[in-house]
Amino acid sequence: MRRALRGSILTACVVLGGCASSSSSKAPEVAAAFRSEEVSVGKAPWVLKGTLTVPAGTGPFPGVILVHGSGPHDRDETAGPNKPFKDLAEGLSSRGIAVLRYDKRTKVYAQQSAAGISMDDEVVVDAVAAVETLKARADIDPKGIFVVGHSLGALLAPEIAVRAAPVAGAVLLAPPGRAPWDIILAQLRYLEQPPELIASIEKDVELLKAGTLGDKKLLGAPAAYWRDWASRDGVAMATKLARPPLILRGERDYQVTEEDVAVWKKGLPRAEVVTIPGANHLFIQGTGKPNPAEYQTPGHVDARVIDTLSAFIRTSSR
């Protein structure tokens, strides 16, 4: 199902998935040693392989799971030459925080997922299983586990944290706040796509909202998928957490805009919101008007993102 998105002009990057980088910025500084080990997440028939990075020392350490954006991502959320989840994992583990990242179900089991899946199937169930994987380890503090989601994963991070309770907190990296079809259309207009294409998708969106899209798909996904996405209220779920989430957005992010962040600010007035100057949707530095062409340039997650996450996790783990 999600492969159809990548095959169109509206790639997973455009439709709230992972984007590639925008600059050749330096890799996050690795300040201390850590080790990596291969782990498994979930149960048959949906077992997923992953990598756990563990800081040097005996622990127990705070732990993080990384939750991908939309699309069939691998454990590094690889986009072109960029590996933002690898940057986050190694940067945080060099600062004393264990991180679990894993291949997404729609990547590993693409054929089995082609008929259509729910948000639970695509994201939530496996993320909850990843939390349970950390809780079962003696070297991880079970009271210091955090859910860190990006894009679609950020929208669902509060729900994952609630369903995997007890969890110490959540971090939302570029969380969408509007309905997915509104964001899609906004991105099309921003990218100055042909008017006839925009008009065609606008028509399909109206049919979808009216419940009359039928068997026709919108950007490769059935109506049920989009309705399920739109029904997930991340703000409401975040109010159930013991502490407000940390919210980050890149200043140059044209996919998740200030309009999205305003929704979170209104619903969660006590939440800390941090904007990273010059960063795009993947929190990688760039200049000028952001566009898909910049996404094939190698880059790394801005070190300020890792420093901010590390400070939040350490403060919230006390």
Rank of each mutant, 00 (worst) to 15 (best):
I9T: 11
T11G: 15
A12K: 04
S21L: 09
S23Q: 03
F34W: 09
S40G: 05
G42N: 09
P45E: 10
W46A: 15
W46K: 12
V47K: 14
K49T: 02
K49F: 03
A56W: 07
G57C: 08
P60H: 04
P60A: 09
F61D: 00
P62N: 08
V64T: 14
H73V: 12
D74Q: 03
A79D: 09
A79M: 12
K83G: 11
K83T: 08
F85G: 08
R105K: 13
V108W: 00
Q112E: 15
S113H: 12
S118G: 10
V125E: 14
V125T: 14
A127F: 05
E132P: 06
S151K: 11
A154W: 01
A157I: 01
A164H: 03
A164S: 08
V171Q: 04
L172Q: 00
P176K: 01
R178V: 03
R189A: 13
L191N: 05
I198M: 09
S200T: 12
L213G: 01
L213C: 06
G214S: 05
G214E: 05
G220P: 08
P222M: 11
W226R: 06
W229M: 15
S231R: 11
V235R: 10
V235Q: 09
L241A: 11
P244N: 07
V256T: 03
V256A: 01
R270V: 11
G286I: 03
G288C: 09
E294P: 02
D302L: 05
V305C: 13
A311I: 05
R314Q: 13
S317E: 09
